[in-house]
Write a protein that binds this DNA or RNA. Sequence first.
DNA 1: GTCTACCCACGCAG
DNA 2: CCTGCGTGGGTAGA
Length: 327
Amino acid sequence: MSKRPRTLDSFFSPPATKRSRQAGGDTSKVANGETTPSQLSNHPTYPFAVPHLPPEITDILNFAPAQEARIINDRPDLDLLYFQPYIPKEIQRPLFDFLRREFFFYKVQYKIKRGPVETQINTPRYTTVFGLDETSIFNDAGEVIDSATGKPPSGKDAYTCKPRPIPECLDMLRRLTENTTGSKFNFALVNYYASGADSISYHSDDEKFLGPDPCIASFTLGAKRDFLLRHKKTPAAHPSESQPMKLPLASGDMVLMRGKTQSCWEHSIPKRKGGEAERGRINITFRRAMTKGGTANYYRYNVGDGGVFKWDGGRGEMVAWKGGETG
DNA sequence: GTCTACCCACGCAG
DNA sequence: CCTGCGTGGGTAGA
């Protein structure tokens, strides 16, 4: 697709050396069907073009899952598949480094009212999101069109956000996960927990736009972090079965949450002091949104307006990206 | 082995 | 739904 609008690509490509021959576009191929060593996923909504995974990674990733899943359903209303790991050992580190280096992340902020006072919440993690709900698809030109009519949604059906296609480097993992699980996914949420001070408190992914009993695949790369699950209502009759569950999610692991897990349980990644957590953990979740409201929600709460950050390999930390705003 | 100081996980209030 | 603080359990070192 060198003919496709290149949009911001030229802005962020190095000046005419390494990447000068690369084609943009998320389905691009060179003549005779071969791929270049580093193609790019590009879209007007991306601040940066996102490279495809290098063959050193994709060649190994195709052998995933590395382990068979363990079923965890011995607690009421809980149904998990636990792959330890899903992603083969030899590419865990390269994949972690790739994703942390190539993605732009957001620090979501929002306001809540506690009684009379309004307080600003700065979410203790970095996040980004790609995808589009079931009602729509991207056409070859990268435009959003209605799944049924093929026309751009207009009027009350128009999107108020700017949906971004899942870049190929994540889409490959999404397709693998679909094959492994038999479930369909149209959204990829990526979280980066830069240190043990980053966290997410107890919540459920039980929004209506995910439909009943949603199936959500959650990947870990990088530092091992505890993943806590607790039943929403603790039945006094069976306290032992309702004890919180702790999974020590390590690099490469994947947990599939399904059945009544979201409707009846909450999960969290608590803060952790010292040790491994300081090296940073990337979490990728795949899920399936059914309505336009789902797309609006995910872009509101995962792209937000709290500033744009990118990994600085020299400094070894996330730094604010000049400009601070994206489209 | 015992005591103590410190650290950290956990729960709860705001 | 985050942060701060109190508390109790675990443990390294004297």
